[in-house]
Amino acid sequence: MRWQLGRRSDNVEDRRGSSPGGRIAIGGGIGTIILAIAAIFLGIDPSIILEESPQQSSYPDSTITSSSPEEEELVDFVSVVLGYTEDTWHKIFRERGETYVEPELVLFRNAVESACGYAEAATGPFYCPRDQKVYIDLSFYQQLKYNLNAPGDFAQAYVIAHEVGHHVQTLLGISQQVNNLQRQVDQVSANNLSVRQELQADCFAGVWANRTQKAEQILEQGDIEEGINAASSIGDDRLQRQSQGYVVPDSFTHGTSAQRVRWFQRGLQTGNIDECNTFATENL
């Protein structure tokens, strides 16, 4: 991926040298197990599993002493990718006569406090609609490469683009509509709504890749395959089969590998967010 000449975003908040000022909401036992499973799934709304009312705390500036040159390059990469998402979504929203509000991206180590609650690094990257921020511990990219077998810089960019896709859903009012509907239906139906929301975020990530490629020519040979592989690696069916040896479709919250690839490719091929209406089709 050709990213080095890209614009760096001003919306990166570095908390890697800070510690959250409250306790982790989930301790040992079943909560830890649920959190570990959720960590593998991208894009969760942590307010579902994290403490609803976090304590207030401050994040004083502190010197980061354990950062390697490799990690600092990754920080630079994340800033560029976030900048690409800003430029692309500003353009898409302007075309629709709307205004795009940029999210912040928070870098943290080990644990973090968000408006959605406290989260450990094991939660994985997430978007919090309450403060409109994306959160990521950069160690997740090692898990993506080695544990999920999804290496490559475009796979890493896809992670950010997916989380920003959730921000787009918040700006468009989709997230609130889904949350309202989920309160009115049974768990299986609520899970189905979650799947549709996640697949739409995958489609939005594909739209971002399409439009950014046309504007900036960022893609190199093999990048698309990296993105598709990452989408496939985090399908509910694949993850459940790996972790427990069987799948429970009614418990899916993010979609199968095939579904995640299909919707990412739809956005990638069309570059049109109107093609991402996962809520208007029976066949996902």
Rank of each mutant, 00 (worst) to 15 (best):
T63W: 10
T63D: 07
I64H: 00
T65I: 10
S67F: 02
P69D: 00
P69F: 01
P69C: 00
E71Q: 11
E72R: 14
E73A: 13
E73L: 10
E73D: 13
E73V: 05
L74Y: 08
L74D: 08
D76F: 08
V80T: 13
L82Q: 04
Y84E: 13
T88E: 02
T88V: 15
H90D: 14
H90S: 13
H90I: 11
K91C: 02
R94I: 10
E95R: 13
E95K: 12
R96V: 05
G97A: 06
E98G: 03
E98D: 07
Y100H: 02
V101Q: 11
V101I: 12
P103Y: 04
E104C: 02
E104T: 11
E104A: 11
L105Y: 06
V106R: 05
V106D: 01
V106Q: 00
L107K: 01
L107N: 02
F108D: 03
A111S: 12
A115R: 09
G117S: 05
Y118W: 11
A119Y: 04
A119V: 03
A121K: 07
G124Y: 06
P125S: 00
R130S: 11
Y135H: 08
Q143I: 15
Q143C: 09
K145N: 15
Y146W: 15
N147S: 14
N147L: 15
N147D: 14
N147I: 09
L148Y: 07
A150L: 07
A150H: 06
G152A: 04
F154L: 12
Q156A: 15
A157P: 05
Y158F: 14
Y158L: 14
V159S: 04
V159Y: 02
I160P: 04
A161L: 03
H162K: 05
E163K: 02
E163V: 00
E163G: 02
V164N: 07
G165S: 06
G165I: 00
H166F: 05
H167G: 04
H167W: 02
V168K: 02
Q169R: 09
T170K: 13
T170V: 14
T170G: 08
L172T: 10
L172F: 03
L172G: 06
L172V: 05
S175D: 12
Q176Y: 08
V178A: 08
N179W: 11
N180W: 12
N180F: 15
R183F: 09
V185S: 08
D186Y: 04
Q187M: 11
A190S: 13
N192K: 14
L193R: 05
V195L: 07
R196L: 05
R196P: 00
L199I: 03
Q200F: 06
C203T: 05
C203G: 08
A205P: 09
A205I: 06
